[in-house]
């Protein structure tokens, strides 16, 4: 009873935040709305007895990734010149993807309705830190390792890209400066 009420409260908040994220013109408002989505999702995880996933959701998505996104938005200080005419084809693309997503949702509804309603013993302990850790480092060790290597590659790649981009730009600036000075003389 209380659980259902809380679910509808947080789910409604999540959907409201998601809609406001899509419809806001200002990127900072969109980012704040996305943080709202993450926080209400994590509240839903807590009501589903998965506190570890809830804490990690807040710690990583709301606390780390979105902070970086907001940081970038604040640094760039974007104006409202998104150029809607140029991106017209995206409407059709988005509409098509939306239809696919909706079909998937209905399929999952259908599958869940048809499945036999057996309460399993695993549901209570599934969200515990110990269970997640054991599953990650025994049964799903290979996927975890693959994801780890992928992330490491991404880190090294981003560092390489940032370095390679920074040096030529600096040279261009220096060249321009010296040209300007030669012109003045």
């Amino acid at each position: 009873m209380v659980g259902t009420a809380l679910f509808f409260l947080f789910a409604g908040f999540a959907i409201m935040c998601a809609i406001s994220m899509v419809y806001h013109k200002n990127p900072l408002y969109s980012a704040i709305s996305l943080v709202g989505v993450f926080i209400s999702l994590s509240c839903i995880y807590i009501t589903l007895a998965a506190p570890f996933i809830a804490a990690v959701q807040i710690l990583i998505y709301a606390g780390a990734i979105m902070v970086l996104v907001v940081f970038v938005i604040m640094l760039l200080n974007l104006d409202d010149d998104s150029g809607p005419n140029r991106l017209k084809y995206l409407y059709t693309l988005g509409g098509g993807l939306g239809v696919v997503l909706l079909a998937q949702t209905f399929f999952i509804f259908y599958a869940v309705m048809r499945a036999s309603n057996v309460p399993s013993d695993q549901t209570l302990s599934a969200g515990k830190t110990l269970t997640i850790g054991q599953a990650m480092y025994t049964e799903y060790l290979l996927p975890v390792e693959i994801v780890g290597i992928l992330l490491l590659m991404a880190i090294i790649g981003s560092v390489m890209l940032a370095r390679r981009l920074a040096q030529p730009q600096l040279e261009i600036v220096v060249e321009r400066e010296s040209e300007l000075r030669n012109d003045e003389q």
Binding site: V35, P51, F52, A54, L59, G63, V70, T129
Partner: peptide, 23 residues
Amino acid sequence: DVGVLFVLGITSVGVYGIMLAGW
């Protein structure tokens, strides 16, 4: 069950207060 992560996570969300105030 995850008190340490809870405290770290919530305090990391607290950065938004300062960032948004500044912006």
